[in-house]
Design a protein around this nucleic acid. Structure first.
Lengths: 195, 195
DNA sequence: CGGCTTCTTGACCGTGCGGTCAAGTGTTGT
DNA sequence: ACAACACTTGACCGCACGGTCAAGAAGCCG
């Protein structure tokens, strides 16, 4: 869109994004109409199209913001921790904490993966997350702390476990983040059999 | 719908389900119109509503069929194998082989998870799959072959790994099923660190 | 105050959707 | 041959969608 916004304008924009995000997550992207969004906020339709070119652009912005938020939480969490395995663990714990506060993004991510117009944007974000984990794993292999197999495969394993456990135990039931994190870390490090 | 169908009728019904499934997977459920489906098959709109009450019912039928198909493949694969850990491995391999032939269901499952009208049906099917793996894991714990922690958590770990690796390496790139299966099994058994 | 920009309104538009149905065509059993 | 049933057609309906825009309100600066 590219428009000069005052502080008030930026707030409105954020308000639209936040509200739309929860509506999309609860009701689905397509079934949630622009009319529904503006009515829910008690404003006219023109407000929506003042801040966004289209419903599609809004969704992409929401997606981008969510990915950035999660990524930032991970980065902050592992900071300059020297042990690569510990960095992975801290990343997992940070992701779970962030997801606990942002449960709705599960649906947004899952939906985005199913539509060709959104999948590329989603994929780009995920590739960055994978690259991060790959870096830690490579370091771990060098230090002899991780099995010497394709680091990318291992990274996807870690992401798969984290994603699934958090979806089931954090979003659906709402169990303790720390317990889920313990289980995810243990599974990622030692699998079914254990050390 | 509940209608008496001749052999020809059943074929048409199946044709509609198969074609619609690929259209839904490629273009998304909502953006794919009933008109598009019947045009793609070169038939009138009435044909659709002869076999299905609604677009929604069609999608639920497609979902059910896909879940049954995958489940059947798993059951056949591990048959009466006595070793529970080996049963898990055979289940993973069977799932991957089935998914290779049915790549499009990834999108259907992911989309179904995001809409409240479809999520319950999806969940029911997944619970059955989890219960299956849980059984093998419990047997494995009894035999001392698997770590003695909550079997359901471990089962979700296995599903998470399988799901993620297959999505990335089987659907997106199309790597060899056996190699992916080897990697998934290894990760599930021994995690990042190895035995 | 006046003038400029930012923001808001809501009636309106064209389009395409899911779904209906009266009419007709094949097919099958007797 | 005939009736009964299984299937097919496509024009049509009402509706709700995403998006537009002329008009005006509110905030800000000289």
């Amino acid at each position: 869109m590219e428009r000069r916004l005052t502080a008030r304008g930026k707030e409105r924009r954020q308000q639209l994004m936040d509200y739309a995000a929860t509506r999309f997550a609860e009701g689905g992207y397509h079934p949630t109409s622009v009319a529904e969004i503006v009515q829910g906020l008690g404003v006219g339709k023109g407000v929506f199209y003042w801040y966004f070119d289209s419903k599609e652009e809004l969704f992409l912005e929401i997606l981008k913001e969510a990915q950035q938020g999660m990524r930032r939480a991970q980065r902050v969490a592992y900071g300059d921790e020297p042990d690569p395995v510990r960095r992975i663990e801290l990343g997992i714990r940070a992701s779970l904490r962030w997801l606990e506060e942002n449960r709705h993004v599960y649906n947004l991510f899952q939906f985005a993966a199913t539509e060709e117009q959104f999948a590329p944007a989603l994929r780009r974000g995920q590739e960055v997350a994978v690259a991060d984990v790959v870096r830690h794993i490579k370091d771990g292999i060098v230090e002899g702390k991780v099995r010497d197999v394709d680091p990318e495969v291992l990274a996807h394993g870690v992401l798969g476990v984290t994603n699934q456990l958090s979806r089931i135990y954090l979003r659906d039931r709402h169990d303790s983040v720390e317990e889920i994190a313990d289980a995810a870390v243990a599974f990622c490090l030692d699998g079914l059999r254990g050390p």
